[in-house]
Design a protein around this nucleic acid. Structure first.
Lengths: 153, 153
DNA sequence: CTCCTTGCAAATTGTTTGCATACCT
DNA sequence: AGGTATGCAAACAATTTGCAAGGAG
């Protein structure tokens, strides 16, 4: 019986901290894994986990997402639409750190994902200059998407 | 009687859109200008504007900040502490675009500002690749500040 | 005079918290 | 057994909205 390595990692990190391995925690992470690349709100996750585990409470989902983020198992982004979103990022892309950015159109609100990490150099520079040890970053570009830019002319 | 150029700019932009120049709008922008470099919440701005103009309502401050941001007169940042913050950025630094980033310590929550814009190249790249016209960006680095990194060893 | 804007208060909504119970280890 | 985790419901807090009155063009 093979065990997904994200799940294994979760269990390790939980034990490390003296926390407990529960069905709810496993399911929340698993839902994020099955929707990699999707920016999910707590409510989204709640909806999906509920299918397999109807007794789960929304508060547990919030607490679990926070926990997963603290343990660096998931990424967190805020697209300024009033709710925080989570996604599994770096875990699935081999050893490389997660690295996609978001382009948010100020006119139509569309959110476009943009791959490619060009910030590594900058992070090194920050560490040397300030002593701040960078673990992750969140980058958003605001502007006009191709269509809206065209329409504005 | 000289008029601050941010105020002049505000008036221009408002007229352009057929909107009205009101005391409240002028004061909100002026408070941000007097606190350049500070990341202010709506409540902060409300508190300061109230000194000169006690009748102002908090809702107006929210509406005005949103408006100023729409008109690109101020920058907006979300430091994940539950409220949106505004600041005057690029307007005051000559022609250069606003460009400071935020380092957020995951352990103690401290927020450190970091100057220097190394994203220009990246923005150009995005425009060429995707057709998305970048107007502004928001960059946050998560990690451990010097003190917390030390303490963790 | 017209329509934009404001102030107030009520409504919304994402998220957090208290607490008794249930569950890992 | 013992402390952690959960579900539920109530509490919170930032922000938004409806509406009548006020003010700019």
């Amino acid at each position: 019986m093979e065990q997904k390595n994200t799940e294994k990692l979760l269990k390790e990190k939980l034990r490390e901290k003296g926390l407990k391995v529960t069905q709810q925690r496993i399911l929340v992470l698993s839902v994020l894994e099955q929707n990699s690349g999707v920016h999910m709100t707590a409510e989204d996750v709640y909806g999906l986990v509920s299918k397999d585990y109807p007794e789960i409470g929304l508060a547990t989902v919030y607490r679990t997402l926070q926990l997963l983020w603290d343990m660096q198992l998931v990424d967190r982004i805020n697209l300024d639409d009033g709710c925080v979103r989570y996604e599994i990022g770096h875990l699935l892309k081999g050893n490389a750190r997660h690295s996609h950015h978001h382009l948010i159109c100020r006119s139509c609100g569309r959110v476009i994902s943009f791959d490619g990490d060009l910030l590594d150099g900058l992070e090194e520079h920050i560490e040397k200059t300030t002593g701040f040890h960078v673990l992750d970053h969140e980058v958003k570009f605001y502007g006009l998407c191709r269509d809206c830019a065209k329409a504005q002319k």
